[in-house]
Computed example of a mutant assay.
Amino acid sequence: MGDSGCGKTTLISVLGCILTPSEGDVWIDGEQIDYENHDLSQLRSEKIGFVFQLFNLIPYLTAVENVMVAMDIAGMKSNEAEKRAAELLTQVGLEQRLHHRPAQLSGGEKQRVSFARALANTPKIIFADEPTANLDSRQSANLMNLVRELRQEHQTTIAIVTHHEGLKKDADRVIQMKDGQIVSV
């Protein structure tokens, strides 16, 4: 947690192996990450899921196809990927929206597609950057209920970056940041 611009997104980008740290070490699932010699794309594909603030859905693909992208990259067969994508979208309450493109979905529906995509390869950790920023209070509450259910069912660590104080109640641990520094845990 922290104010806008305090470094939350940068921190999860480093932890998620999108950005290289200027100092220190990152460990994922008991393994130290060697940013120069590690296949970071494969690592992200196998162990990390992302839910981006602006969803990052591919506009010309349907909801099911957007979820399948992550599995395709990981090398899953197309028919298996489509079946799993449909199951994940059903799990997040979008069974009636499988073949809708992002422009045909509400903000909350896009966010649920994004969560389904993040879960596609059964990651150890999901980084969610301001997942409630574009949602109204009802959609935010529904999304946080979904996060709790997904965390329990999939045994996945979900790290949520936010400046929204109301989300503290849903956290097992809160890390407070200010001016690029962790100030409390």
Rank of each mutant, 00 (worst) to 15 (best):
M1L: 12
G2V: 00
G2K: 01
G5D: 10
T10P: 03
S13V: 01
L15R: 02
L15H: 00
G16P: 07
P21K: 01
P21C: 03
I28E: 01
I28Y: 01
D29A: 12
G30C: 05
G30N: 12
G30E: 06
E31G: 02
D34A: 01
H38V: 12
D39L: 00
S41V: 15
Q42K: 15
Q42M: 14
L43Y: 05
I48D: 10
V51I: 15
V51T: 08
I58M: 15
I58F: 15
Y60F: 15
Y60E: 15
V67S: 09
V69S: 07
A70Q: 12
I73T: 06
A74G: 04
S78D: 13
S78N: 13
A86C: 10
L88M: 04
T90W: 00
T90S: 14
Q91D: 09
L94P: 08
E95L: 07
Q96N: 13
L98E: 08
R101C: 08
A103D: 14
Q104D: 14
L105V: 02
L105T: 01
K110Q: 15
L119N: 07
T122A: 14
T122F: 12
P123K: 09
D129M: 09
T132Y: 06
D136M: 02
A141G: 06
N145A: 14
V147F: 14
L150S: 03
L150E: 05
L150A: 05
H154P: 09
T156K: 03
A159Q: 10
I160Y: 07
V161C: 15
T162C: 07
H163V: 04
H164S: 15
E165A: 14
L167A: 10
L167W: 09
K168H: 11
D170G: 00
D172V: 07
G180L: 05
I182Q: 07
V183M: 02
S184E: 11
V185S: 13
